[in-house]
């Protein structure tokens, strides 16, 4: 766990030091030094830092959003609520707060595919999806999602027909967008728990589709 993730602008290897010799990367030392300063000066409580990390490692992540989507698929009243007041509907499942204070749900349809980006920083609906993946915060995604979303989606393995309209939502304010992917065929009568297992993080950003249950059956048989 001493690696240095790629820079926002992409991995050009120009200025990176992997420290294969086991040494600490500059940024690791820099963060460690700042943390010590802040603790010593009494501005932060180390136990609170641990609690924040634990929250985003174990409690707040994309399984929350998957439960929202599954409920929306299974419960027409919840679906209406989600479309009318996503913040309240999502809050009713216990997901609220930081970076999800003002939620909007956008449903994919047979004709329209939604994709969410933040070209200016990394706005992302934390209470339902957790912390954003590196690609969501990176220049390759932020630069191209608004001008060449079909090309971006193809890199995720998603090739949409030219007739499928794409709608890109650039999160330039404090509204946070959750994509509700299309419910796969062959899931009639499924429990919410089974449905939620079909909903990936990427599908709730719009960078993928819900998992086709036929592919799961194939895996089980293999």
């Amino acid at each position: 766990m001493g690696s240095v993730p790629p820079p926002i602008g992409g991995d050009n290897h120009a200025h990176r030091h992997d420290h294969d010799d086991g040494g600490l990367a500059d940024i690791e030392l820099r963060v460690r030094a700042l943390e010590s300063l802040m603790i010593e000066k009494g501005y932060v409580d180390p136990a609170a830092l641990d609690a924040i990390v634990e929250t985003y490692e174990t409690k707040i992540g994309p399984r929350n959003g998957a439960r929202v989507v599954a409920r929306s698929w299974a419960d027409p009243a919840f679906r209406r609520w989600l479309n009318e007041d996503a913040t309240a509907a999502i809050g009713s499942l216990g997901y609220s707060g930081r970076q999800g204070e003002h939620m909007t749900a956008v449903e994919n349809t047979a004709d329209v595919h939604n994709l969410v980006v933040c070209t200016l920083c990394s706005c992302y609906p934390w209470p339902v999806l957790g912390l954003p993946p590196v690609w969501y915060k990176s220049a390759p995604y932020r630069s191209r999602a608004v001008i060449d979303p079909r090309g971006v989606l193809a890199e995720f393995g998603l090739r949409l027909p030219a007739s499928t309209k794409i709608r890109v939502w650039d999160s330039t304010a404090e509204i946070r967008y959750l994509v509700v992917p299309l419910r796969p065929a062959g899931t009639e009568g499924w429990s919410e728990e089974r449905l939620a297992a079909l909903v990936s993080r990427d599908s709730m950003v719009g960078a993928g589709l819900a998992t086709d249950p036929a592919s799961l059956a194939g895996e089980a048989a293999a």
Partner: peptide, 14 residues
């Protein structure tokens, strides 16, 4: 302010 810029290369999923 990156929207519309080019040349950063492909998106690497994770």
């Amino acid at each position: 302010d990156l929207g519309g810029m080019m040349g950063f290369g492909p998106v690497a999923g994770e």
